[in-house]
């Protein structure tokens, strides 16, 4: 029998895929960004359906709340309107691109069909919910992966400096007046 959790998954999957299709088909970049925000939120829902509450919250804060808002802001600053030629031209190359994406999907689908059930045949182990799972997550992150964590921190610093260097302009409110 299908339970509520199954219907929830199908609903979330539908929203995610409709959002994903709309992202790559919307002619106006601003709609692409808004659809992507919806996709991010429903992916957070998918995480919740997998009992990953904390990651879902972080997905909302980081992706939907910060990264996508940044995208929308930049697009609004550019004042981009509907694009008349949003897609790359060329029938042959377009067909090749579609076909390669289809083959790619088929490859993944085939490998899932053939292997996943055999690798993970046993019924899912119940991860402990919410608070304890969050503690376990923090323990893993700050012991086993502490080195990667530090490296990611340095990377973020580099990225921040790089982004500032790229977008520096002369003048503006923060310019030094001698």
């Amino acid at each position: 029998m299908l339970e509520l959790a199954d219907y929830t998954f199908y609903f979330l999957a539908l929203v995610t895929l409709v959002g994903g299709i709309a992202v790559i088909t919307a002619q106006n970049p601003i709609y692409s960004a808004l659809w992507l925000a919806l996709t991010m939120v429903s992916v957070a829902g998918v995480f919740v359906s997998l009992d990953a509450w904390f990651v879902a919250g972080v997905q909302l804060i980081v992706y939907a709340g910060a990264v996508m808002v940044l995208f929308v802001m930049v697009i609004m600053l550019f004042d981009l309107r509907r694009e008349t030629n949003a897609f790359s031209r060329g029938m042959v190359s377009g067909f090749l691109k579609l076909a390669s994406a289809g083959i790619f999907l088929g490859l993944i689908g085939g490998s899932i069909y053939n292997s996943a059930e055999t690798v993970f045949a046993p019924p899912p182990a119940e991860l402990e919910k919410t608070a304890d799972a969050t503690k376990a997550l923090a323990n893993t992150l700050f012991t086993k992966y502490i080195f990667s964590f530090e490296v990611i921190g340095v990377l973020l610093l580099v990225i921040a400096i790089g982004a500032v260097t790229l977008s520096r302009v002369q003048g503006g409110t923060h310019a030094k007046h001698d």
Binding site: I24, P29, I75, L80, N85, A86, F87, S88, K97
Partner: peptide
Amino acid sequence: VLLRKNVIV
């Protein structure tokens, strides 16, 4: 990535 031309998209 393959089909769109706009960098942001």
